[in-house]
């Protein structure tokens, strides 16, 4: 078994790899965890992870700059249907397009656009009610019906906290793809997915026990 974390010059690859190593140890997963920018590695990966930190456009450009990566991802994720996890901007890249500093094409795997979080009541300066951007810190996860049945997410039912830091969020074109939400001013998409594809806006690698549990369940996922 091999899990490949795609290295496209964006993101906290080291933290993601370390968290997967811990989760693998916790759940007795005996495969290899590889950080790579090589499309060949992605083609024969059993699990694929796309992390991402920063702006949508920068990340999209970084991914496109890796020659052959797009085709390798299409092959492994879309054709071979191997388990895929997008984290933060890696999740946002699954959308059709992102509207952060201009319009940028995404992978187009899940219907939707990545739009700016709307500030709630600009007059109200009460902290934590959706006025401050970025949405930064620990927020409660609220699973949808589909999310509660999802093998990777169902362990996070019951108001578990996860760590978020973002200013844009995934506005899904089809609400059936939304697996979890969180409340910040209004409702924000916290997890999205279809078939073998899963994306989380929060950072499982920074969400202590809850995050490690999600990563372990991802390693056990047989979609």
């Amino acid at each position: 078994m091999k899990l490949v974390i795609i290295n496209y010059g964006s993101g906290n690859l080291r933290s993601v790899a370390k968290a997967f190593e811990r989760a693998a140890g916790d759940c007795g997963w005996a495969g290899r965890i590889v950080v790579s920018e090589d499309p060949a590695q992605v083609r024969d990966a059993d699990y694929i992870v796309l992390p991402g930190v920063g702006a949508f456009g920068d990340c999209a450009r970084g991914l496109q700059a890796l020659s052959g990566m797009d085709a390798a991802m299409q092959y492994a994720v879309r054709e071979q249907k191997r388990p895929f996890l997008g984290i933060c901007v890696g999740m946002q890249l699954m959308a059709d397009r992102g509207l952060e500093h201009g319009v940028h094409q995404g992978l187009g795997w899940i219907n939707g656009e990545v739009v700016e979080i709307e500030r709630s009541d600009p007059q109200s300066k009460i902290p934590l009610m959706g006025w401050r951007i970025p949405h930064m810190g620990w927020n409660t996860l609220s699973l949808t019906g589909t999310g509660r049945a999802h093998p990777v997410l169902r362990g996070l039912a019951g108001g578990v906290h996860c760590y978020f830091v973002h200013s844009y969020h995934f506005a899904a074109g089809d609400t059936r793809d939304v697996l979890a939400e969180t409340e910040y001013g209004g409702r924000l998409t916290a997890a999205i997915g279809r078939d073998n594809m899963l994306g989380v806006q929060f950072h499982p690698e920074k969400s202590q026990a809850a995050g490690l549990r999600l990563l372990a369940d991802f390693l056990r996922w047989k979609p």
Binding site: P127, L128, G130, G137, W138, N139, T140, H161, F164, Y184
Partner: peptide, 8 residues
């Protein structure tokens, strides 16, 4: 709801 953070 977002929580207040305590940071050592």
């Amino acid at each position: 709801m977002l929580k207040v953070r305590i940071i050592p």
